[in-house]
Amino acid sequence: MAGEILVATNVLEYPYTRTVGPVLGAFFTGLREGRIQGVRAADGRVLVPPTEYDPLTSEELTEMVDVGQAGVVTTWAWVYAPRPLHPLDRPFAWVLVRLDGADTSMLHALDAGEPERMSTGMRVRVRWREGRVGEIQDIACFEPETPS
């Protein structure tokens, strides 16, 4: 007769370091200073967030470009019941935002209060966090440009 088949929990915990390199380094440093920067791609488009290498030609990208702190929602999904680790403790929208001066959209949260206020193409602006450290959460969230 076979013995009991045992099962055990195996926790793997391990600290890592991450080095961001010059392009993302500039982006995160900019966030800490309250600026949003993209990078100019080989075809002239401004990519936000920036990438180190051109997604089409693989060229090294170096020209950082300041973009606006407001833009338009290009698509969105409403979160009716936020989970504990979500960026907001009340219902909100995940949005792709194309900032003024940018040619690509960035994922973030939008504090719109209720889903009826949401529409593709709506104008939104950055709400900065207090005590910024140089990470994407320095943008607390976006908020509608027009007050409700």
Partner: peptide, 12 residues
């Protein structure tokens, strides 16, 4: 330590 580059930058 190549703290000046990302993993991508190192390979590149």
């Amino acid at each position: 330590t190549r703290g000046d580059v990302s993993i991508a930058g190192l390979c590149r």
